[in-house]
Design a protein around this nucleic acid. Sequence first.
DNA 1: GACAATAGTGGCAGTCTATGACATGAGCTC
DNA 2: GAGCTCATGTCATAGACTGCCACTATTGTC
Lengths: 212, 212
Amino acid sequence: MPDPTLRELSRRAIRQRLGDVAIRIFAERGYAATTVDEVAAAAGISERTFFRYFGTKDQVLFFRADEDTQMLVDRLRERPVGEAPWISLRQIVLVSLDLLDDEAELERERMLRSILNSTPELLAHQLARVADTQRTLGDALWERWIAVPGHREDDADTRLVLRALVGAMLGVLTEVMMHAEDQPPAERRRLVRTALDAIRPGRVDLGGEPDA
Amino acid sequence: MPDPTLRELSRRAIRQRLGDVAIRIFAERGYAATTVDEVAAAAGISERTFFRYFGTKDQVLFFRADEDTQMLVDRLRERPVGEAPWISLRQIVLVSLDLLDDEAELERERMLRSILNSTPELLAHQLARVADTQRTLGDALWERWIAVPGHREDDADTRLVLRALVGAMLGVLTEVMMHAEDQPPAERRRLVRTALDAIRPGRVDLGGEPDA
DNA sequence: GACAATAGTGGCAGTCTATGACATGAGCTC
DNA sequence: GAGCTCATGTCATAGACTGCCACTATTGTC
């Protein structure tokens, strides 16, 4: 990022501000009961301009999550080539949970979850996003897999298994985030770690049984 | 059903007709490009009345799927008590695939899939529905499990495993339906059967390794 | 620094989904 | 058939979006 031009800075700032304002108002008065106009006004812009930043009312709640997905993929790419897939996954997930150590971030996550849980339409959107993350991470894992000498590009079975691995991991993550939402960050981290270890794959080349 | 009163008959007929008309028009002209008013008019009713049959525009595409879920649960309840969960699941899924032998039903499923795949919002709705089916079937499976003498109601591990079983099964089903949509029914049935056998659980009391 | 090209903004009108209120007319109970 | 309930249509309205146009701010060029 060489040139954070003034326009670009302003754009990011307004996006951020809209995101913060929206999540707070939605949490207070409810998602359906809040109009886009109210959110825009609270952020100091017109309704028309809101829709130039976010295509729809709900996107204002999810743009941060898009960044999270990208962060997971980036971190995955930073892991050493040849590391067993399950180990890589476990690592990047546990690191990303550290975000919740930040008090403000934790509070934000709480509000977001309460909004999502009380609006079926948003929950559906969330599921679609998880499915998307699963696909993206699965592809990235596969790219890394076939980059290892000796691994074949036509190993369809393993490709499927890798997708399943991501699915299992995200499944655990969602389960814990949904059903242990009141637990402190440390406890949630422990739960995730325990669950991940419980379902680790049998195949050693995938990262199973590292201590056997 | 003792008394299919005239009103009730009419209501069902109109619902059915709306569903058929809507899916056809959406497939022809696109979901977003078609207004509710057009669908209602094509079915011979007013827009206002459409919303008395379906709360939202997209519900007209999913009410049949709701019936399918109910059918799965009903069929599960008809299986002998004490049958291993995985066997029961495999059975009811394979039987339900027979629906696609009906030419009209197959064509309908094709149109529906094409509409869903070209509208992210509908795909999200679909995912939410699958999640819901998973919960419902998981609960039903659990009810049957604890009805067996010797099985304990506080066996949280097994309860989780049962949910995971349903998740795995629905995962396979969705995967095949999405990625083998052009295959004839017999081939799809074969794929599902193969995949289900490949991922059957290890624990014998769940229905794994029946032929070992 | 002046200038033109480019991009962001608000206001306005209009479409579409969805809902409440009301009147009318069909079916249902006795 | 009288009285009742329920379904429907019409009308009006809120709220999410979108296209259009005029206006202002920023950028790049000389």
